[in-house]
Design a protein around this nucleic acid. Sequence first.
DNA 1: TATGAATGAGACTTCATTCAT
DNA 2: AATGAATGAAGTCTCATTCAT
Lengths: 191, 191, 191, 191
Amino acid sequence: MSPKSKEQIEQIRSQSIDKILDAAFTLIAQNGYESTSISQIAKLAGVSKGLMYNYFDSKEDLLKAIINNALSEGDKLMADIISDNPSQTLTNLFSWYFNELRNHIEKWRLIMELTFKIDKFNFVQEMARNKAQDYVGFISELLQQIGIPNPKQEAQLIAGLFDGIGIQYLVIKKDYPLDEMEKYLKEKYCK
Amino acid sequence: MSPKSKEQIEQIRSQSIDKILDAAFTLIAQNGYESTSISQIAKLAGVSKGLMYNYFDSKEDLLKAIINNALSEGDKLMADIISDNPSQTLTNLFSWYFNELRNHIEKWRLIMELTFKIDKFNFVQEMARNKAQDYVGFISELLQQIGIPNPKQEAQLIAGLFDGIGIQYLVIKKDYPLDEMEKYLKEKYCK
Amino acid sequence: MSPKSKEQIEQIRSQSIDKILDAAFTLIAQNGYESTSISQIAKLAGVSKGLMYNYFDSKEDLLKAIINNALSEGDKLMADIISDNPSQTLTNLFSWYFNELRNHIEKWRLIMELTFKIDKFNFVQEMARNKAQDYVGFISELLQQIGIPNPKQEAQLIAGLFDGIGIQYLVIKKDYPLDEMEKYLKEKYCK
Amino acid sequence: MSPKSKEQIEQIRSQSIDKILDAAFTLIAQNGYESTSISQIAKLAGVSKGLMYNYFDSKEDLLKAIINNALSEGDKLMADIISDNPSQTLTNLFSWYFNELRNHIEKWRLIMELTFKIDKFNFVQEMARNKAQDYVGFISELLQQIGIPNPKQEAQLIAGLFDGIGIQYLVIKKDYPLDEMEKYLKEKYCK
DNA sequence: TATGAATGAGACTTCATTCAT
DNA sequence: AATGAATGAAGTCTCATTCAT
């Protein structure tokens, strides 16, 4: 009826999409994918169920969008950690990771959950795999520059540690010595 | 009086229960708890849906039985690792863990999955938490006896590593350098 | 914004709700609550099973709606019986009750049935109890004004009679001398 | 195997049957027919489910047996109330009925419940109808002999009252003035 | 006579998805 | 772009009944 400019429409679209993604992320990260219904998401987003199918083909499609969203945000921040000094860079990497855990624990819960849905969502595993490989290479190089012995193996250990600490923090929450571990790792590897 | 002997009955029961537990474990470990239906389990087990409710009160009850089953098996084997020599004991612990990953990866996948179902199945988290705490204490003591510096922190690292390596192995599977990591850890901590 | 007007929506809703309530009442009053399945109700109402759960939280919830529906209708009519003359009021009360039996026998069948489901549906018993108490008080006062001896006891008798006649009419149906009893009671108590 | 005499077998049979009937009556009278499962009955009776089908063709068949049992017991006692004096006989009838309510309220609950399952269990209605008709005739005659005016109508009233008082007592239980009503009725009709 | 493991139909309920407006 | 009524398949669970022993 009322004529709207392309920009207006685009703005409306992206507003709705954002509302939906936010609501979906919140609920799924909190309660899990299977336990979150489309109705709940629509209600929290303040839109109708029908509208969701204008933007996302299916519940699964919506999930993929959430994941991509979550991971791309992380990457943006990762870019800032690189410094001239490898020791400093590694320190930054540790800081970044521990802060991610502190501030976005729900995101990590979600990624972990999906990582174990082997058959569905292979793409999450694929991503996790690539990312892990990248990390190992990146850290390995840093360790070598810093002068740590067995840099490859130690990098593999550290990559594993990242996941392991994440899990344990998720499970133990406030009882996990997150600060202490951060300090210890920095002292150990970043002299 | 009774038309079948008690032994016969007991045998029939435990056969059926085993068939159900096996089928349930296989499917749930493979596809996840929520994505596995009672119908699927019954079909794979070769029994009727109704029979499952003779032996298990609910789907959740069945899951608990699976978990308990899985964990008690693991504990049996854990008992064998203790030796007079702390270095040897730690070596055994590493061997035990890496072999668990190699031989019972599906079990670990299941436990991981449930660990992230925060609200339901608190008991799994509870168990995981206690087990982690026990491990840290146990390993810490070994490290001290062996003469590793910062034994407490290192124990915490190793406990984290166990989970982390598990995850990465789950995700990367055949490409993960499991043998190499096992060897490296033993060299590093068990001199 | 909204594609259908609020009135349209509301009309559609109440049409569906009415269809469901009608069908549910018919079947439950006829066959009993436990013997009536959601599927049967949906089929008779001409809607899907799922739709019922848009409007009612559960089968029990649906039943409560039916009861409230049925009773509120009755109360509306009860308001009309009061007159200046106590004798006339009592006559009206008798008329109202006998007509209820004649015209809405299924409703009484339903209420009777639920009254005997001791543990569930206490609210029906509660209502029945209160209603009975009210009746006794009300009738007692009328009888006193009319000058009947032992008004309290006679009121208690009459309240009992109401239920008793209802049951016998339900059971004997067309062979029960409903008209005759109505006439006799009016002569006896309303001179 | 072991040879048993006919009497022995017959005794075993009737013992088992009695245990089953008792258990079934207790549970069904307490919780209702639909809410009582064969399993519950078997457990309370201390026999296997299978055995029940040796003696009763179906759950419905079992119910019929219970009803017949319950009603025949009542008839035995009814025989004792007849006296030479009609006034005394009527007094005895009232006493009998009020004691039935006091002592076997569960039985009346059960009969009431089934009375409203119109389609199934027509035989209960049939019985109730015949019994009511008999009562009316019997009481009518007594009233005439005693010299109460309008004996037919009053008999119809009393028969209705019996059911009505039963219902109200069932619903109100300990708050119902059972003793008072008994006394009042005797005074009113038995001078 | 007696057992209880086993069945399978059917109960209530949830929820992703569609579609007329 | 947006709504929400409506659907129907699929889920968990119950239970009367059967049957080999």
